[in-house]
Simulated scan of single mutants.
Amino acid sequence: MAEPPKLKAKSNPSGKPQRGKPERYTGKRADLKHNATKQDGEKRHVAGKKDFSRPVLASPTYNTERDKTDRFSSQIPPSTSEEESDLIYGRHPVLTALETQRQLNRLWVTARLRYDHRFHSLLQQAKENGTVIDEVEPKRLDQITHHANHQGIAAQVAPYDYLELGGLIDKAKSTSQQPVIVAADGITDPHNLGAIIRTAEAIGAQGLVIPQRRAVGITSTVMKVAAGALETFSVARVINFSRALEELKAAGFWVYGTALEAEQSIQTVKFSGPIVLVVGSEGEGLSLSAQRCCDLLVSIPLSGNTPSLNASVATGMALYEIFRQRWQNVNYVNMGTKKDKLEN
């Protein structure tokens, strides 16, 4: 450390001390100011000298305005709620939404697909109904769908409009004399829920009941996996799942629950009348509260080493058995009618 400059004596002819006037430095004054010592015992640092013990953080520089936008946009965390995502993509899901005149806020389509004979008139009609149509390059669709298989088209849809349970019951009874409603207890995988909806609608079921809590709702992934089935298939979302099952029983439905430990096999049960098929979640299965609300628990017999089935696969197998019995009875009645006509 450099020594401070020595004081130079000031000439005083009288020899008397100069009172009231402090002695001054005549040489070059060194700045010996120190930073205040911190309470945590950090080292003092002389002002004007660099402290090489601490890293120096350089301030960011931006070459373009786009660099600034990219930097700050990357700091924004992505949305973790899948239900906030209201995007559907793929030719079949979007085509079905257009054909059923579902409310679409915005639609992105490639030039090649926009003038396709299957889409052109429907896109014009959607534009007249207020949908914003953007003709974009495939790379833009890759960005919007996060490199999913968009097939040249994507659309932003309005949030799914759930039915009330009472409305679902009335609609099911008006559609069929022996309606079938699926009740999914705590399905958390959107792919499973989408597959259940697709299978249930294809085989002839009238609707679906799902709980509001601890279960996935109708998201863009569910819509994609359902492959357009939601455009003609009703879903009710209820707060209390057990109470909803009791309400269905009061409306005349017979409630069957699928459980791995159930003693009665599904092929031994005679299904007739209005039916509610209750299926459990992927890991936990059917909850105890839901089991208590069921009129009968049935199991699907398995002969292999795999101990259980996927939720959507089990639902499809159970639904097939229900409708197989009905198709068999219908064919038997038709055959009997034809035989009576031949004998007469």
Rank of each mutant, 00 (worst) to 15 (best):
T69C: 00
A154T: 05
M223R: 10
A183P: 04
A9N: 11
Q325K: 00
G204N: 02
I169R: 07
L193S: 02
V180F: 00
Q125M: 06
A172K: 09
H92T: 08
L342Q: 14
A314V: 02
A97E: 10
V333K: 11
L87F: 09
Q18W: 04
R214A: 14
A58Y: 04
K43H: 03
S272F: 11
G27M: 11
A251H: 11
K339Y: 13
P22A: 15
A155R: 00
K43M: 02
D295L: 08
C294P: 01
T26M: 15
T96G: 03
E82Y: 05
I88Y: 02
T188H: 03
A155D: 02
E82L: 12
G285T: 05
K33I: 14
K339C: 07
A172M: 12
M317Y: 04
A205Q: 00
S234Y: 06
S281V: 04
A250F: 11
N129M: 09
A262L: 05
S299V: 01
R213A: 08
N63G: 15
R71V: 07
L309H: 08
E65H: 03
Q125K: 06
D31G: 10
R24Q: 15
A158T: 13
V269H: 06
I144Y: 05
Y332A: 12
V298E: 00
L288Y: 05
F323R: 00
Q156T: 05
E246W: 15
R114Y: 10
T232K: 07
R292A: 15
L95C: 06
I275D: 03
R71F: 11
K338F: 10
H117A: 14
N240S: 15
I203T: 02
E83C: 01
S81V: 04
K68P: 02
A58H: 05
A9P: 10
K43I: 05
G130D: 09
A262G: 03
Q151D: 11
L123T: 04
E246M: 15
R44L: 11
E135K: 03
S14R: 10
K68H: 06
H120C: 05
N105P: 00
R114M: 13
V94C: 00
G194T: 06
G15N: 08
A311V: 09
P17A: 13
D70P: 00
T337R: 09
V157N: 01
V222H: 04
E128N: 11
I133C: 08
Q264W: 01
L98Y: 06
S287T: 15
E137Y: 10
L193A: 05
K49P: 02
E82F: 07
L7T: 15
T188G: 02
N344I: 10
Q103L: 13
L342H: 11
I300G: 10
R91W: 12
E82R: 08
P274F: 12
L319R: 00
A97R: 07
Q177V: 13
Q325H: 03
G90W: 06
S176V: 08
T306F: 07
Q325E: 09
L122R: 14
A227D: 15
G285W: 02
P138R: 12
K16Q: 13
R29Y: 11
R19V: 06
D189G: 07
L57A: 14
Q328A: 12
D161Y: 05
K224W: 03
L277P: 01
D185I: 02
A250R: 15
A47D: 11
A155V: 04
I169L: 14
A36G: 10
S312W: 01
F52R: 13
R326P: 04
K139P: 01
E231G: 07
L288W: 04
V255L: 08
P17F: 13
R24D: 12
S242R: 14
E261T: 14
